[in-house]
Design a binder for these strands. Structure first.
Length: 498
RNA sequence: GCGCUCGUUGUAUAGAGGUAGUAUUCAGGCCUUCCAAGCCUGUGGCCCGGGUUCGAUUCCCGGCGGGCGCACCA
């Protein structure tokens, strides 16, 4: 197969090298929207998470982990039950599926549709004899389509698999208030599975029915949103902003301005929210995306979720799918805590300032990363083909394997033995490494290039005499001579992520 | 979900109503003193179900899955 710098070569690499397999289960023909990470993919994902955890601890975030299944009342309170169930209508003949409110607005532009009940919508469809736009047959009865996966727990308790991790974190509010000893903002995050019953999953792991989220929450006072200290430390940082008003002029090139300028020009209202945008950008940059591939795009008021006062997507440009959201930053106000207070009858009004007796329900700022999308966009943006050589130029600390060890030739026992010894030494230092003696030395280098292994160590005749080896660097393909006892140090130093 | 289209070794592909080639990968061997060399040997495949037929991987129907367009996307 000729190696070409194209998306087909990339897609085949992702499968061949054990990053992503599916749809799973493959041996039964697959189930749309479900994928598996192979060994290389799992390793990459773990390294992504470990970088997140390291950085989040630096920013002062606490980690929690909640159940993925929650009783119905949680979703009633969060608003998901209402918002995630769409009224739909099917054409009686061609079976085309439409969202009831949308199709009614289209067919009856002069009628007020918003807020109508299921019964009223049905009545409209019948009395007006509404017809399917694609085949002109009658539209059927209203049905419900639930984007949340429903299940039964115990005898007959209705429950739902969480469609986001955020809500489950909010349920911990009074515990966290105690734990953090009222030091606001409380910064907390949760990593875990979320599930959505997508009507038609597409684009591989970009839209799955079960996926990984890592969501950061800031519980913060209303006044504190305007005065947050952390903002003043980073207000001169420049980010690629694309606000919604600019988008209405069909301009999609981001404007690189500082957080302070964004606040002053009114693009962002609250310094604390600006700080959240900064965190999302900073964390994303740590993975090594190139500048031109990142933008922060603001949602128009119509595009926002039911809970959001302001919303931005951090997007990465991909060759295969265009701009992809890898992180959503939302100002959820006090919506969630207020609703959970109401439904749970707990008291979430607290005094955040010991000098006054004023009580308030904290505001919530949310930074929601999609881990699978980070993994995909990273793979794609690191994929590099030059002169028939595939190189997956992941940052060394993200590569599934850190080092590969080769004997220069395999039919010389002393060289093999020493190579195996060197690999054992690496393993003893807990450095993820790989031994390979099959094929020519060049072929073995290429194998590791495809996996993104940043360092290869080759043992040759000279090594037997002076205990030195060749270390070969993935991106430059340069080689250096180093002593065997220095290997763990040199590798460890090169793997440091800062 | 609708429409179009596609589904052949791990990957990428060829092909015909009589169960399959090619490239590469992979395993073993020979060779090899640093960037996919060469030679030999070997492993491995027609998405699932039904129908038509003496015979189906090939034709038909249905399902499942992929791609694209529409719809959907908290």
């Amino acid at each position: 197969m000729k190696i070409q710098d194209n998306i087909d070569t990339f897609n085949s690499l992702v499968k061949r090298r054990g990053f992503i397999w599916g749809p799973s289960p493959e041996i039964y023909g697959g189930f749309a929207g479900f994928y598996t990470y192979g060994p290389a993919g799992s390793a990459l994902k773990n390294k992504i998470l470990s970088l997140f955890r390291k950085e989040l601890s630096y920013f002062g975030f606490l980690e929690v982990e909640c159940p993925t299944i929650m009783p119905e009342i949680v979703w009633e309170a969060s608003g998901h039950l209402e918002r995630f169930i769409d009224y739909i209508t099917r054409c009686t003949k061609c079976k085309s599926l439409y969202r009831a409110d949308k199709i009614l607005k289209e067919l009856l532009p002069d009628t007020l549709i918003d807020g109508l009940s299921k019964k009223e919508l049905n009545k409209l469809i019948k009395t007006k004899n509404l017809k399917c736009p694609s085949c002109d047959s009658l539209l059927g009865e209203i049905e419900e389509y639930n984007l949340m996966l429903k299940t039964n727990v115990g005898d007959n308790n209705i429950a739902y698999l969480r469609p986001e991790t955020a809500t489950t974190t909010y349920l911990l509010f009074n515990r966290l208030d105690n734990y953090a000893r009222k030091k606001y903002p409380i910064k907390v995050f949760q990593y875990g599975k979320a599930h959505r019953n997508e009507i038609s999953p597409r684009q591989g792991i970009i839209r799955m029915r079960t996926f990984d989220q890592l969501e950061l929450q800031l519980f913060i006072g209303k006044e504190q949103e305007m005065t947050l200290e952390e903002y003043f430390d980073v207000k001169n940082e420049e980010l690629p902003f694309l606000d919604w008003k600019t988008q209405t002029k069909n301009i999609y090139k981001p404007n690189i301005i500082s957080l302070e300028e964004a606040i002053n020009s009114g693009v962002i209202k609250k310094p604390a929210f600006a700080y959240c945008l900064y965190i999302s950008y900073f964390l994303t940059k740590r993975f090594g995306y190139e500048n031109g591939l990142i933008r922060l795009r603001q949602h128009s008021p119509a595009e926002r979720a039911h809970y959001a006062d302001d919303a931005w997507d951090l997007e990465i440009e991909t060759r295969q799918y265009g701009w992809i959201e890898i992180c959503g930053i939302h100002d959820r106000t006090d919506y969630d805590l207020r609703r959970h207070q109401e439904f749970s009858k707990q008291n979430f009004e607290i005094s955040m300032d010991t000098s006054s007796n004023k009580k308030e329900i904290p505001q919530v700022l949310e930074i929601a990363f999609g881990i699978d999308r980070i993994l995909y966009t990273l793979l794609e943006s690191c994929f590099d083909v030059k002169e028939q050589r595939i190189n997956l130029k992941l940052k060394p600390f993200l590569a599934p394997y850190s080092v590969a060890v080769f004997p220069l030739i395999k039919n010389k026992k002393e060289i093999r033995d020493l190579a195996k010894k060197v690999q054992k030494k690496l393993l003893n230092n807990r450095i993820a490494s790989f031994y390979d003696e099959t094929g020519s030395i060049g072929k073995r280098y290429r194998r590791q290039d495809e996996l993104g292994t940043p360092f290869c160590i080759t043992i040759d005749y000279e090594s037997l005499e002076d205990q030195s080896v060749t270390i070969r660097y993935r991106d430059s393909m340069e080689q250096e001579r180093i002593k065997i006892n220095k290997i763990p140090d040199i590798i460890s130093r090169n793997l440091i992520s800062i």
